[in-house]
């Protein structure tokens, strides 16, 4: 279980008040984060992944504080919208880097990489380079790497924004399965309310550096009385 407790952060030199986050994610759950640009969604992911250091507060994974850990030692995997893969390395190597950055793989690890690529339907393509793949396939490779890394927290930063609706739905379904199979916790940032509907039972609405609402996804998207939410969704 991921607990974000009174996490405060303020950009150096910014005049806006400090951001403040409280949020819990249960094992196997994907929580979607929606909200206007600049509201703090990416900041929250940055704090969890360690690219940003909080001014105060805690991030607990299964009760253990992780907010002071260095980026590489955090139990976190991230999928960005782009540049998840190194263009000059083949798929196998791109995934294998997730297991061991020095690429000295044991036989066991080699088969793990192969299995992950198979799980995502990429086994025929492992010698290819990312440039030869479609956008959806590239993100699948990134997910294969998430799989081999076996980290508990998965952050998806508009990971599927560039893909078509059907492909998006398919990949989000895949993420859901991966997360629940492996009892991971996931945060998914998206601008598509439909993504949240597919991915999450619960969705958080982030606004002005706060979790302004955290509710059942359907309830939040369709029945919220908060003017900010309705404004964001264009249903005001």
């Amino acid at each position: 279980m991921l607990e974000i407790k009174q996490l405060e952060f303020r950009y150096a030199g910014a005049s806006a008040p400090a951001m403040h986050f409280d949020l819990n994610v249960d094992p196997g759950e994907v929580v979607s984060l929606i909200g206007p640009s600049g509201s703090g969604k990416s900041t929250l992911l940055g704090l969890v992944s360690g690219f940003l250091a909080p001014d105060s507060g805690q991030i607990l994974l299964d009760g253990a504080a992780i907010e002071k850990l260095a980026v590489p030692s955090r139990p976190v995997s991230i999928v960005f919208q782009q540049h998840n893969l190194f263009p000059h390395l083949d798929l196998f190597t791109n995934v294998a880097l997730g297991l061991d950055p020095s690429l000295r793989l044991t036989r066991q690890q080699v088969s793990e990489v192969t299995a992950a690529l198979e799980r995502l339907g990429l086994e025929q393509l492992q010698q290819r380079k990312p440039g030869e793949l479609s956008g959806g396939q590239r993100q699948r490779v990134a997910l294969a790497r998430v799989l081999v890394r076996k980290r508990k927290i998965l952050l998806l930063d508009e990971a599927f924004a560039a893909l078509g609706p059907a492909l998006r739905a398919e990949l989000i379904g895949l993420v859901k399965n991966l997360v629940s199979e492996n009892k991971m916790v996931a945060l998914l940032v998206s601008h598509q309310p439909r993504d949240a509907l597919i991915a999450s039972t619960r969705t958080a609405f982030i606004c002005e550096g706060r979790v302004a609402a955290l509710d059942d996804t359907v309830a939040l998207l369709e029945q919220s009385r908060l003017p900010e939410v309705r404004n964001y969704l264009g249903t005001l």
């Binding site: 992944s49 690219f51 980026v71 590489p72 960005f80 190597t93 950055p101 020095s102 790497r145």
Partner: peptide, 17 residues
Amino acid sequence: HLCQSLDLQGWNRFRYL
């Protein structure tokens, strides 16, 4: 950021990236 999250650092980062 990707390198950091993959712990791809120092010599490995130089060699592979």
